[in-house]
Amino acid sequence: MKPRRSPWFDWMVLPTIVILAFVIGYPIVRTFVLSTQNYKVLSGLPATGVGFSNYQQLYHDPVFWQSLRNTAVYTFGSVVVAVIIGLALALLTEHMAGPWRYIRTVLLTPWAVPLIVVAFLFRYMFDQDSGVVNALLRDLGLIHSNVHWLTSSTWAMPTVMLANIWTAVPFFFLVFTASLTSVPTDVVEAARVDRAGTWSMIGRIKLPYLLGPAMIAVLIMVINNFNDFAKIWAMTQGGPAYSTTTLVVYVYQLAFSSFNMGYASAIGVVWLLLLMIFAVFYVRLLQRASR
């Protein structure tokens, strides 16, 4: 029996649409318009339409391409590592019971630390001179001179990613722990009766149950990382040179130090398109996987 058509609950999505149109829709439209204009606030001149020349400039801008690469490394690198760590910990602590179950709670604690604090905490711990990481590595004899974690082009990106991974692991750990409880017990028992080994138990029985949740969690995290500003800005401000300049940092610099609004908006638009393509592609993949 089909439910009677009751139009009012179709409207229940309206508040969401009204708010989003007000707070996000208008700015998006404005960003599109700005991206086709030459608008440098500091010049004191009004905005003038320039068609697609901002996009042309973008194409020839090495910093844009570098920040695109950095964004990809930062986003996907952090997510992959965090997924692996989160998955490993979830599998290993799955059967912990009694007092041992508190271990799972402890593994979640980093999530409660505000992101801005994480950024400063890691900056402080990885300071080349007064940081505890170099001191520990020195004491253990692993290094002889201080590693320039945040102040060398080689290490800055991995260090920023490490801070990001630290905040992301609990999220994946929680997702995987939750999804492991949805693996039907009889399936696991059946496999056990068949004397499935640890690896095939994980690979053949559990992973298929984790795949769907993992992919949604990954999508959420990818979008979050793509937009992550506070951590990078507080730790390196995009430096040294452009080694940790991601798109969001580059846009911030263009918009709030050069006040080159047209150019910054063009990057914003490209960024929106890129993520949309990624999301569409990803949702397809998701639908195929869940079939």
Partner: peptide, 9 residues
Amino acid sequence: AGVQSAVTS
């Protein structure tokens, strides 16, 4: 960025 590149690479 250039100065930083000089002192870090």
